[in-house]
Simulated assay, not measured.
Amino acid sequence: MTDDPNLPPALAEIVEDFHAVGDRERLELLLDFSRELPELPEKYGGNYAESMEQVVECQSPLFLAIEHNDDGTVELIFAAPAEAPTTRGFASILQQGLSGLSGEEILAVPDDLHQRLGLAKSITPLRLRGMAAMLRRIKRNIQQQLTPVQ
């Protein structure tokens, strides 16, 4: 699963890390990612539910913001409760693997990313669908932002 040409380098490395360990260790790796999810920028503060978009398909409360940098790259900002480590882990994977890419590069990420991590034996299908929903929401928002208003 190394050097997957369909994935940006950071995501390919994350997928490779998941495939380098056994099923039980994959859960630990997902928990490690959950602890790495960055704190919310101060501008989102305590009212992030009002200033960010909720990804309602997730079992746990998850909020998303997409920021565009002057150089054309995208930054993903997530808010998820500490008591939702699976959701936080998925959000962290997407944040680490997609932030800094252009909108076009993110749109090219395969929709089956959640399957490529090899977590199907360890995580319920409902949770995996939550990660797929996060990626779909990110792509939909970027597509809307890239499409000129007519």
Rank of each mutant, 00 (worst) to 15 (best):
P41G: 02
D23F: 09
L113I: 06
G97T: 07
D17S: 13
L101W: 04
A12Y: 08
D112A: 06
D4H: 06
P148A: 15
E36R: 10
L126P: 02
I106V: 06
V149T: 12
L7K: 12
Q59H: 01
I106D: 02
L113A: 06
E105R: 11
R127Y: 12
A65L: 01
S122W: 01
Y44L: 07
Y48N: 04
H114F: 10
I93S: 09
V74A: 09
Q145H: 12
D70L: 11
Q59E: 09
G72P: 01
Q96D: 10
D3H: 10
L37R: 00
S102C: 10
E50D: 13
E13Q: 15
R116I: 01
T87V: 14
T87E: 10
M1A: 13
P148C: 13
T73C: 07
F90W: 12
A84I: 13
S51I: 04
V149H: 08
R24P: 01
P5G: 09
F18Q: 05
A84R: 08
F18V: 07
L107N: 02
G89Q: 11
P85E: 13
A108Q: 08
A84W: 14
P5K: 10
K139R: 11
V21C: 07
Q144Y: 11
M131G: 13
L146E: 12
E50Q: 10
P125C: 06
G89T: 12
D111Y: 01
L135I: 07
E39I: 04
R116M: 03
Q144V: 15
P125W: 02
R136K: 15
G45L: 10
L11I: 14
P41I: 05
S122T: 12
L94C: 06
V55C: 05
F63P: 02
E13S: 14
A120C: 03
S92A: 15
T73G: 11
L76P: 14
V55M: 05
G130P: 13
I14L: 09
L107K: 00
D32Y: 01
G118F: 05
Q150I: 13
Q144R: 06
M131L: 13
E42I: 03
T147D: 13
E50W: 02
G100P: 06
P110N: 04
A108I: 03
E83I: 15
L126T: 14
F33G: 01
M131N: 13
L7Y: 11
I77G: 06
Q54L: 06
A133T: 07
E42M: 02
E67C: 01
G100T: 04
I123T: 11
S51W: 01
A65T: 00
A91L: 09
S102T: 15
D3N: 13
V55N: 02
E67S: 00
S92R: 01
T86Q: 15
P61C: 00
T86A: 15
V109A: 03
Q96T: 07
A132N: 04
L62N: 00
N6S: 12
L101A: 08
L11N: 11
E57C: 04
R24N: 10
Q54C: 09
I142Y: 07
A20N: 08
L94M: 07
V109L: 02
R140S: 14
M1T: 05
D23G: 05
S122R: 13
L146A: 14
L30A: 03
H114Y: 08
L7E: 02
Q143W: 05
V55W: 08
P9T: 11
G130M: 12
H68V: 03
L37G: 03
D112V: 01
P61D: 00
T147I: 14
R137V: 14
L76F: 12
H68K: 06
A120L: 02
P9E: 15
